[in-house]
Amino acid sequence: MSGLIHIYCGDGKGKTTAAVGLSVRAAGNGWNILFVQFMKIQKSGEINLLKSLPGVTVLRTRRGGGFSICMDEKRKRETIEGHNELLKEVIGIVQKGETDLLVLDEIMSAYNTGLIDKKMFEDFVVHKPDYLELVMTGRNPPQNLLDIADYVSEIKKIKHPYDRGIQGRKGIEQ
């Protein structure tokens, strides 16, 4: 089987949720999934569920992370170092040949804000193993990634409670 490249993008709620749903489907079919979150440091319910599924490994940002617009220079350096370490770890795991589906959640945010080594990331995507199904999420994917993707799904916000000041709610956004 030849693995394809998916991008879930847009300004709407649901990019990570779509990636989680695909991960659950793949796990239900006996696949090995590596679900990796960049930028995100807050707790979220879907991560607890994914960790409990057989065949699913979850890795998250360990240093830095958070919203890039809130980062001072020290936090940016920590985030870059943490993201690059995480990406190197992911590449090492994938090279062992035991991952069927790789999800890089919020990788577009890390990429677009310069909080990851772009060349290392691009080289990995372009030279990913043929069998590997790759999912990338986040807003504003660059054209070079859109060009090589097989699936591009845009999630568009029409209306969101946050616009009225309603914060994320446990079980819905968290």
Rank of each mutant, 00 (worst) to 15 (best):
L53H: 05
M108R: 01
L132P: 02
P142K: 15
T113A: 14
G64N: 04
R139A: 08
V125K: 02
T57R: 15
K119D: 11
K40Y: 05
E122M: 13
R60S: 13
V94Q: 00
T17M: 14
G45C: 11
G55R: 01
E173L: 07
E98T: 14
V125A: 06
E81D: 15
S153L: 10
T57Q: 14
L102C: 07
G92I: 09
Q143I: 12
I166A: 12
Q174C: 12
R60E: 15
A27Y: 00
N48F: 11
K40T: 02
I47C: 04
L34P: 04
I172E: 03
E89C: 13
I158R: 12
E173M: 06
I69T: 14
G82S: 00
V24N: 06
E78P: 07
S44A: 11
T61P: 05
L87D: 01
L115W: 00
S109A: 14
S2M: 12
V24D: 08
K96D: 09
D100T: 06
M108Y: 03
M1N: 11
R60N: 12
M136W: 05
P141C: 10
T16M: 05
H83T: 04
Q174M: 14
T57A: 15
K51T: 11
E98Q: 14
E85N: 12
N84R: 09
I5W: 03
A110F: 01
L132V: 10
V125N: 05
G55N: 07
K170R: 12
I172G: 07
G168Y: 10
E106W: 03
H6T: 03
R77V: 06
E46R: 06
